[in-house]
Nucleic acid binder design. Structure first.
Length: 964
RNA sequence: GCCCGGGUGGUGAAAUGGUAGACACGAGGGACUUAAAAUCCCUUGGUCCGUAAGGGCUGUGCGGGUUCAAGUCCCGCCCCGGGCACCA
């Protein structure tokens, strides 16, 4: 019997479904292992060959762990809320539920064909009310919590209220207040708190809640009609769709992720994640140590943040961000028109413009002065858009001698530049060295920078003019979306104050609306819903962002149908953290930060025994497309009477040759053919490169010209199409490695590969391509190798088409092949080095075929070892080996070192490090004996030409090096 | 500019400081076949010497260094990919 992949794969996919082979139970004595793939968003385009790369790798690990005696949780589900489905709904009027259903079905079908061992009975979808009930529930817990900086954890808001009733709010209590320049709330004592009316109390609490409503500067995207989080904006445009984004102040739901900044940073150290990913997170959190300094202005003050308090004596002005609340206050009347005009233009400039015009210095003087805390000197207060409102306090003390941006600003406006460090060349640039010595007059003079920083902070604290402070770049996350297709936020309003829905009212189900567009008044789509109210009070109309549902989904898989909780404590205690989390590096700063944040929060409030979601995380590399391009030639001629201008395509190598020789007779020839005896001079050749769909390109970059032509004709008429081929008649495309995408016509669909070669070949080939974490181009050409391997493997079980596996005892050589393979494959899976394990399987099959080995004791363990990689063929052969239970229940075969012991070793004999010959010696031989025998060898003697070697190095079982 | 990766044949790649290029694709040659497909065998980094057997030199982005021995370790550069960036 031949290896019939189509038949075998269909048979076992059906069989696994029927038998629920991959169903996982929570109650078992086995140790657990949790392998999770990052939640896919099921787009309409379906899967291309790059998507399953990570799924295949994690599936191999899941299967391997199952063989190794673990109870493996390996689920899959969908992040099914999101903008694309909604955009589509707006365009077509079709409900996003419908399009989502269609996309999910297609996704599932594609996934099923690859033979994954997912437990589909645990599937979750973020858009399912039974799921988002718990997303809403977690939101309510966040709303009902504050961050206690003393205990360094989230606590119920009731405990904060109790505290206010007891001792009010003062000093450090407000230190967790975050957000973009929140107005200072002020202190109050217990009596004052009790005297506050309900409205005031609620407003105060908003400052502390982890999910809170406030006026914040947001990234507003007019084209999408919604607010975006910082990580959803790339280079000033929206990450999805590339629409422009502008700054806007809006009343907005936010998540106080900043309260967790330090913890998010600290616990990175213990995670088994890639360094680059951890670095991205550290970067994004952006911790910097420094000090706040208060500059008095009359009876008031301006607070700045600086990492260099040691340069305080070099301050020559203060710059406020245009959005800073104090700008209006400190602008003198005579400067007011100018300042207001500047603030207006500055705030109208989008992030993108500000970024693009980094070199353009702009600013304006407010007319006011602040007092230097040490010298008492007058320091002018300026406004400049190089200061960001969202970082630090939105104000800087400008030290042109020590900061290049301040230097540029000072130069531009003719402000004084004072040297703060020895050796600074301040007429050229600021000196930002952190190992310099302070030279500015004052008590810091002569100190090294670090020492001066400490001292400056001490002095500031003495004067009550500032203190040491740690600042973070991380901002609170915008949480509300002015969109339809997301989780409704379970909040209603009474007298304009937000109140949480009771748990009994969950899920707050997404209402039907007549259109998925904002209302005429610019209200979000939910405002169109009828009776969108709770007990007569209006409900919140914004919905949650895409990252809400994906920030806790790993917990739901543990107990997906629980109606009383997001997951039972028993399930959580059993499954714990994700042991292996697999996904793309594009989620480095978005999903993975929120994911960690929610986990820490749920931990703080006592619902989780751990505070990190994933112990180990692996980023699979991207699979790039290899685009094919066809050279299209346009010829210009002195002759103007050419009537028939053909679409002329020229094969890549022929073109290169033509270009080198300068002989364009081929082009002329075609023109002559079409224009009856054209004999003009071809004066100019211009070439454009057109994409050819990679489906038309075969082995060795050869284009199927007929298919290409038909395709071109389908998409518009081309009358005269001519191809200039190579001498052998083939037409060659030029190739280029690019991102795999529809627009580049280089998408390879896994379905096509599976139809031709089968899922097992696809799985093996994706792993064989190279190291998992590296990006690599997809080249279908190489797939034959893995396909041939599977056929050869199959043939080990067959002799002239008859299944024949013998029970004869294997020879030493056969056992050696088996155990060497088991050792390598086992170790490789542990290190996630799948490309080398596939190589090892190939070596094994080649060697066993050469040995004509058809023995059960070799083939059976080998089949189990192959099962994680190629489950269908393994399962089929397992059955043919007379097993009735699925191969997934077979224990992993252990390698045995005794079969790998060699008696002899063939030593490479090198002279001065260059290998010259091989000599075989028994392993048992000592160093000295090897040395003696090597030197006694006639060929060695001949090479030594009678001279005594300077030195002989013998490394047992490695090498002999003779130094002459 | 800063922070991470990475640079090895025609291609994807392999290599605890110890025989560079395993494995696979492609290419070339051969066997089987009426022919094709499939399969199998041989050759395949470059270069030079030799009729051949075989042998020499050279070679892991570039330049230095450490070492008996460097793709691997150290120093200084170049190039490519990714992340961050008027972050005070």
């Amino acid at each position: 019997m031949q290896y019939e992949h189509t038949e075998i794969e269909k048979k076992w996919q059906d069989e696994w479904r029927k038998r629920s082979t991959y169903r996982v139970e929570n109650d078992t004595a086995k140790p657990k292992y949790y392998v999770l793939d990052m939640f896919p968003y099921p787009s309409g385009a379906g899967l291309h060959v790059g998507h399953p790369l990570g799924y295949i790798a994690s599936d191999i690990v899941a299967r391997y762990k199952r063989h190794s005696g673990f109870n493996v949780l390996h689920p899959m589900g969908y992040d099914s809320f999101g903008l694309p489905a909604e955009q589509y709904a707006i365009q077509t009027g079709q409900h996003p539920v419908k399009t989502t259903e269609i996309n999910l079905a297609r996704y599932r079908e594609q996934l099923d064909r690859i033979g994954f061992s997912f437990d589909w009975s645990r599937e979750v979808r973020t858009s399912d009310p039974n799921y988002y009930k718990w997303t809403q529930w977690i939101f309510l817990q966040l709303f009902d919590s504050w961050y206690d900086p003393d205990q360094d954890k989230a606590r119920p808001i009731s405990e904060l209220i109790a505290r206010f009733e007891e001792r009010g709010c003062k000093g450090q209590d407000a230190s967790v207040l975050t957000g973009d320049i929140e107005e200072f709330m002020g202190e109050f004592d217990a009596a004052e708190w009790k005297a506050f009316d309900e409205r005031t109390k609620q407003l105060v609490l908003q400052y502390f809640r982890l999910a809170y409503l406030s006026d914040a500067w947001v990234n507003w995207c007019p084209a999408l009609g919604t607010v975006l989080a910082n990580d959803e904006v790339k280079d000033g445009v929206s990450e999805r769709g590339g629409h422009p984004v502008e700054r806007k102040k809006m009343r907005q739901w936010s998540m106080r992720i900043t309260a967790y900044a330090q913890r998010l940073l600290d616990s990175l150290d213990d995670l088994d994640w890639s360094t680059s990913l951890k670095e991205s997170q550290r970067n994004w959190i952006g911790r910097s140590e420094g000090a706040t300094v208060r500059f008095a202005v009359g009876n008031d003050f301006i607070e700045v943040f600086t990492t260099r308090p040691d340069t305080l004596f070099g301050v020559s002005f203060i710059t406020l961000a245009p959005e800073h609340v104090l700008v209006g206050k400190y602008t003198t009347d005579d400067r007011r028109p100018e300042v207001e005009a500047y603030v207006k233009t500055a705030s109208n400039r989008s992030e993108r413009e500000r970024q693009a015009e980094v070199d353009k210095v702009s600013g304006v003087f407010t007319g006011s002065y602040a007092k230097h805390p040490f010298t008492g000197a007058d320091v002018p207060i300026w406004v400049g858009d190089y200061v960001l409102s969202g970082y630090g306090t939105g104000a800087v003390m400008a030290v042109p001698g020590g900061d290049q941006r301040d230097w540029r600003f000072a130069k531009h406006f003719g402000l004084p530049i004072v040297a703060v460090t020895e050796g600074a060349e301040i007429d050229k640039e600021a000196d930002e060295r952190k190992d310099a010595t302070i030279c500015s007059e004052g008590f810091l003079k002569g100190m090294k920078v670090p020492e001066a920083i400490t001292r400056a902070i001490q002095e500031l604290e003495k004067l009550n003019a500032g203190e040491g402070r740690i600042n973070f770049r991380l901002r609170d996350a915008a949480f509300g979306r002015q969109r339809y297709w997301g989780e409704p936020i379970p909040i209603y309003y009474k007298d304009g104050i937000p109140y949480p829905l009771p748990e009994s009212a969950l899920p707050l189900v997404l209402p039907e609306v007549d259109k998925f567009l904002p209302t005429e008044d610019g209200e979000p789509p939910l405002a169109r819903a009828k009776n969108w109210s709770y007990e007569g009070n209006p409900l919140e109309t914004t919905t949650m962002p895409g990252w809400a549902g994906s920030s806790w989904y790993f917990l739901r898989y543990m107990d997906p149908t629980n109606e009383g909780r997001f997951a039972s404590p028993e399930a959580i205690t059993y499954w714990q953290q994700i042991d292996l989390y697999m996904g793309g590096s594009e989620h480095a700063t978005g999903h993975l930060l929120y994911f960690r944040f929610w986990t820490k929060f749920l931990h703080d409030r006592g619902w989780l025994p751990f505070d990190e979601p994933a112990k180990k995380l692996v980023n699979q590399g991207m699979i790039q497309g290899v685009s094919a391009k066809v050279l299209s030639v346009a010829a210009a001629s002195f002759e103007t009477n050419i009537k028939n201008v053909p679409s002329l395509y020229i094969s890549s190598r022929a073109f290169t040759a033509m270009n080198q020789s300068g002989d364009y007779s081929l082009v002329k020839q075609v023109l002559a053919e079409l224009n009856k005896g054209f004999d003009g001079v071809v004066t100019e050749i211009t070439v454009t490169r057109l994409y050819a769909d990679v489906r038309f390109v075969g082995m060795n970059d050869e284009l199927d010209t007929d298919a290409f032509k038909r395709d071109r004709e389908k998409n518009g008429s081309e009358l005269n199409v001519r191809f200039i081929a190579e001498n052998d008649g083939t037409f060659i495309c030029s190739r280029e490695v690019e991102k795999m995408s529809k627009s580049k016509f280089n998408v390879v669909n896994p379905d096509d590969i599976i139809s031709k070669y089968g899922a097992d070949t696809l799985r093996l080939y994706e792993m064989f391509l190279g190291p998992l974490e590296q990006s690599k181009p997809w080249d279908t050409n190489g797939i034959e190798g893995t396909f041939r391997f599977l056929r050869k493997f199959w043939n080990l079980f067959y002799e002239s088409d008859v299944f024949s596996v013998s029970d004869e005892a294997p020879t030493k050589a056969e056992f050696k092949v088996l155990h060497a393979t088991l050792k390598k494959v086992t170790e490789d899976i542990e290190h996630m080095s799948f490309n080398t394990s596939v190589s090892q399987f190939m070596i094994a099959v080649n060697e066993l075929a050469a040995l004509k080995c058809h023995k059960r004791d070799v083939l059976e363990p080998l089949t189990i070892a192959l099962a994680p990689f190629a489950p269908h063929i393994a399962e089929e052969l397992w059955q043919q080996l007379d097993h009735t239970e699925s191969i997934t229940t077979a224990p992993w075969p252990k390698w045995d070192a005794q079969y790998l012991v060699e008696d002899n070793f063939s030593y490479p004999i090198s002279f001065n490090g260059k290998t010259r010959m091989q000599l075989e010696f028994p392993i048992a031989l000592s160093k000295e004996e090897v040395e003696a025998q090597v030197l006694a060898n006639p060929e060695v003697q001949q090479r030594l030409e009678g001279k005594a070697p300077k030195k002989v190095i013998v490394v047992p079982k490695r090498i002999v090096n003779i130094v002459v």
